[in-house]
Amino acid sequence: KTVHVDGVEYRFNNPEEADKFVKRLVKEKNGNVEVRGDTYHVE
């Protein structure tokens, strides 16, 4: 899984860790998540 945040790319081998990371980011930023294939885009 890959997570894109503000143009920075984070790669996770463990999908659960990627999910936790995304949830935390969305809370912090009050942002939205767009999923494209295996990539999460957080804005």
Results as ranks from 00 to 15, higher is better:
1 K>N: 07
1 K>S: 10
1 K>G: 02
2 T>E: 01
2 T>W: 06
2 T>L: 07
2 T>P: 03
2 T>A: 03
3 V>C: 11
4 H>G: 01
5 V>S: 00
5 V>H: 07
5 V>Y: 09
6 D>Q: 02
7 G>F: 00
7 G>Y: 01
7 G>R: 00
7 G>T: 01
7 G>K: 00
7 G>A: 00
8 V>H: 05
9 E>C: 15
9 E>F: 04
9 E>K: 02
9 E>Y: 08
10 Y>P: 05
10 Y>Q: 05
10 Y>H: 10
11 R>W: 14
11 R>Q: 10
11 R>G: 02
11 R>Y: 14
12 F>Y: 00
13 N>A: 13
13 N>L: 08
13 N>E: 14
13 N>Y: 02
14 N>H: 02
15 P>I: 11
16 E>T: 04
17 E>S: 01
17 E>W: 01
17 E>K: 00
18 A>S: 01
18 A>Y: 12
18 A>P: 01
19 D>M: 04
20 K>W: 08
20 K>T: 06
21 F>Y: 02
21 F>I: 03
21 F>D: 09
21 F>H: 04
21 F>Q: 02
22 V>D: 07
22 V>C: 14
23 K>F: 00
24 R>D: 15
25 L>V: 07
25 L>W: 02
25 L>H: 04
25 L>S: 04
26 V>R: 04
26 V>H: 08
26 V>D: 08
26 V>K: 05
26 V>Y: 10
27 K>S: 11
28 E>A: 11
29 K>L: 15
30 N>R: 10
30 N>L: 07
30 N>P: 04
30 N>F: 10
31 G>D: 06
32 N>R: 12
32 N>V: 10
33 V>I: 07
34 E>Q: 14
35 V>F: 06
36 R>K: 10
36 R>H: 13
37 G>N: 08
38 D>A: 02
38 D>F: 01
39 T>V: 11
39 T>W: 11
40 Y>S: 11
40 Y>D: 07
41 H>M: 13
41 H>Q: 11
42 V>L: 05
42 V>N: 12
42 V>S: 07
42 V>D: 12
42 V>E: 11
43 E>G: 10
43 E>S: 12
43 E>A: 11
43 E>T: 14
43 E>Y: 14
